[in-house]
């Protein structure tokens, strides 16, 4: 398939933040925001204070996964995959595609710990590790569909979800893929929510 290679060279978002701010709010975007993206305050691995929706999701193509620094289950494999994904996506990451890894152990994962984790894995610009108030992190875990119907598994953080949510906020395109998929498949999946003019036709 040729789609994936093109993502690395294709262009800009037509939705600059300035443009969107002047538009009439779209009710379906608003509904998705209200249901899934509480605008809680989070802290980045670079020590910045950010709002989930306004600063991280709005107007962007995003990938969101859950992790914690001392996780020795699925996290190492998923982080290694995402390092490759970031390289395959090139300079689009940080421009109109943003990667987020949200810590499920916010008490342990201070911004400093997450920064060390990011540096250790060679994480580049545009991929942000996030921590926050435990209450907010738990809210996000539920809102983003990362809980388990089985209460025993749900209480066991080592069993946390390995899914990567990907989406295009202004286009209201949302789906998910497994974080342990091949990196090229993750990149291809994200291409399906790329801006309409960048969608590659088969053939």
């Amino acid at each position: 398939m040729k789609r994936r290679s093109l993502l690395t060279v294709l262009g800009m978002s037509p939705f600059s933040a300035g443009m969107m701010a002047r538009e009439v709010p779209d009710p379906q975007r608003e509904a998705i925001r209200a249901r899934y993206f509480p605008d809680v305050v989070l802290h980045t691995h670079e020590g910045k204070k950010v709002r989930l929706y306004r600063d991280l999701i709005q107007d962007k193509i995003v990938m969101i996964n859950f992790m914690y620094a001392h996780c020795d289950g699925v996290c190492p494999g998923i982080t290694a995959n995402l390092v490759k994904v970031q390289r395959l996506l090139g300079d689009r990451v940080g421009r109109d595609i943003f990667m987020y890894s949200l810590s499920l152990k916010p008490e342990q994962d201070t911004p400093k710990v997450l920064k060390e984790y990011a540096q250790m894995h060679g994480v580049r610009r545009g991929w942000t590790f996030l921590t926050g108030h435990p209450k907010d992190v738990e809210l996000l875990r539920r809102k983003l569909g990362a809980r388990n119907l089985d209460p025993v598994l749900d209480a066991d953080t080592s069993q946390h979800t390995g899914i990567i949510r990907y989406g295009n906020e202004p286009m209201r395109w949302w789906a998910a893929c497994a974080g342990l998929s091949r990196p090229s498949w993750i990149v291809e999946s994200v291409s399906w929510v790329d801006w309409p003019q960048n969608r590659v036709k088969p053939g």
Partner: peptide
């Protein structure tokens, strides 16, 4: 496993 549906421990990949 870890909230991910799988067949023989692997995931969908069209390629």
């Amino acid at each position: 496993g870890n909230g991910m549906w799988q067949i023989n421990g692997q995931f969908m990949d069209c390629n």
